[in-house]
Simulated assay, not measured.
Amino acid sequence: MSTFRPYRFPPLSLPSVAAGCGNDAVQQQAQLAQGFQQGMESGFREGYDTGLEQGQRDGYAAGHSEGWQQGNASVQQQLSSRFDSLAQPLDAMLQALQQLQGDYQQALRREVVELVAKVARQVIRCELALQPVQLLALVDETLAALPPVADEQVSVFLNPEECQRIRELAPERAARWALTPDSRLEPGECRVRAGNHEADAGCRQRLDACIEQVAEQLAEPLPPEAAA
Rank of each mutant, 00 (worst) to 15 (best):
Q34V: 01
V123T: 06
A175P: 05
R82W: 09
Q101L: 13
G39N: 10
G55Y: 06
Q106K: 13
A194T: 05
Q99Y: 02
Q134V: 04
V112D: 08
L138C: 07
N196Q: 15
E53R: 15
P160Q: 09
E114P: 01
Q131F: 12
Q99F: 02
G51A: 15
Q77A: 15
R191P: 06
R8T: 08
H64N: 03
P181K: 04
L179E: 02
E172Q: 14
N72M: 13
L14I: 14
W177Q: 01
N72H: 14
G35L: 13
L86S: 05
S65L: 12
Q76H: 14
C21S: 12
Q29P: 00
L90V: 06
Q70D: 08
A174D: 04
R125S: 13
L169P: 02
K118Q: 13
L115S: 15
A33R: 12
D103G: 09
P10I: 06
E141A: 15
S74T: 14
A194H: 08
V154R: 04
R8L: 13
V17S: 14
Q213R: 11
M1V: 01
I211H: 00
Q164M: 12
R109Y: 01
R8I: 08
Q38S: 13
Y60M: 06
P224D: 09
L14Y: 14
Y7T: 15
F157Y: 15
F157M: 07
R45I: 00
E162H: 14
A201E: 01
A129L: 12
A219H: 09
G102I: 02
W177C: 01
S74A: 15
R173N: 03
L32G: 07
Q153C: 02
G202C: 02
E114W: 09
P15N: 14
V26P: 00
M1K: 06
V119D: 04
E225T: 07
L158I: 07
Q217D: 07
A61H: 04
C210W: 07
D208Q: 04
M1A: 02
P224V: 03
I124Y: 06
G188S: 12
S81C: 08
C163D: 04
E198V: 06
D24M: 10
W177E: 00
G102M: 11
Y7H: 15
I211V: 13
A194R: 04
L207Y: 00
A215R: 03
R57I: 09
Q95C: 02
E189R: 08
R193M: 10
